[in-house]
Amino acid sequence: MATPTLDKADAAGAPEPGFADSPYITVTLRVRRFNPEVSAEAVWEDFQLEIDPKERVLDALHKIKWDVDGTLTFRRSCAHGICGSDAMRINGKNRLACKTLIKDINPAKPITVEPIKGLTVLKDLVVDMEPFFQAYRDVMPFLITKDTNEPTRERLQTAEDRERFDDTTKCILCAACTSSCPVFWNDGQYFGPAAIVNAHRFIFDSRDEAGEQRLEILNDKDGVWRCRTTFNCTDACPRGIEVTKAIQEVKRALITRRF
C-alpha cells in the first residue's frame, strides 16, 4: 500500500510472487474486541496480516476494517498525529496508532491493541471520552480577562512570556496521558494530567487573568495533589510534553502563592 512500485492490481496488497526481497512481513494483531449488543465480555481476536513493517498500526487496523472485518470499530480522523482521535493501548503502552510504526514494536510477536484504560469502552477500541472532557472543561481552558471591553488590538506578549507555557500548548487532547495514570484508573475523579496541562497553559500565560481561579480549582481533593509523580503521563504523551513537570509547576505555584 505504501510502496508505489508495487502493482496495485493486487488489491489485497500481498507481495507479488516475482519479488525476491518483498518488504512484506506477516504480523499478528491481537485486538481487544467488545460489542455490548452481543456479549458483556470483551475478548481478544487475532488477525494475521501481510504488511510492510514501515507502515503504522493504524494502517494495519485499516486493512482489517476495510478488507477483513468491517465490524472492527475505532476512532481516527486526520491519521497524522494531530487530531488525537486514535490513542490506544498498543503492546501495553498508550500511543497514537497513526504515529506507531509496525517495525518499532517488535512485529515478531503478536501486537496487542486495546482501548485506553480508565474510560468506559463503548465498542471495540472506542471509549466514552465524556469524563475526560468534563475534567478539561472544569479547568476553564479559554482566555479570561477582567477587561470586558472588546480589544482594539492584539494582546501582545514577550517571547519569554510565550516560552513560559510553550510546552503545554502542544496538547492534542488524545487522552493518552490521563488514561495511563494509575490514579485516574481508580475512580476517574482525579482531574487527570491532560486537564492540568491545559490549565497550566493558561495559568502561566501572561495575558490571562484567571490563573488564581484555575489554581483554586486544581487545589481540589481530586486536583494536583493526587499526582503521585509516576511519570506514566510523560512517557505516554505522543507530543513529548513534559506532563509531570507541568503538574509539578502547578503544585509549586499553589504553594508559593500561599507562603
Partner: peptide
C-alpha cells in the same frame, strides 16, 4: 492477503442473529 482466525465468540456482526431488538 489477510486471514483471520475463526471469529471469536461473542464478537460478530450485529445484523442477523442479534440477541437484542
Amino acid at each position: 492477503m489477510a486471514t483471520t482466525e475463526s471469529t471469536a465468540a461473542g464478537v460478530g456482526p450485529v445484523e442477523g442473529g442479534s440477541l437484542y431488538d
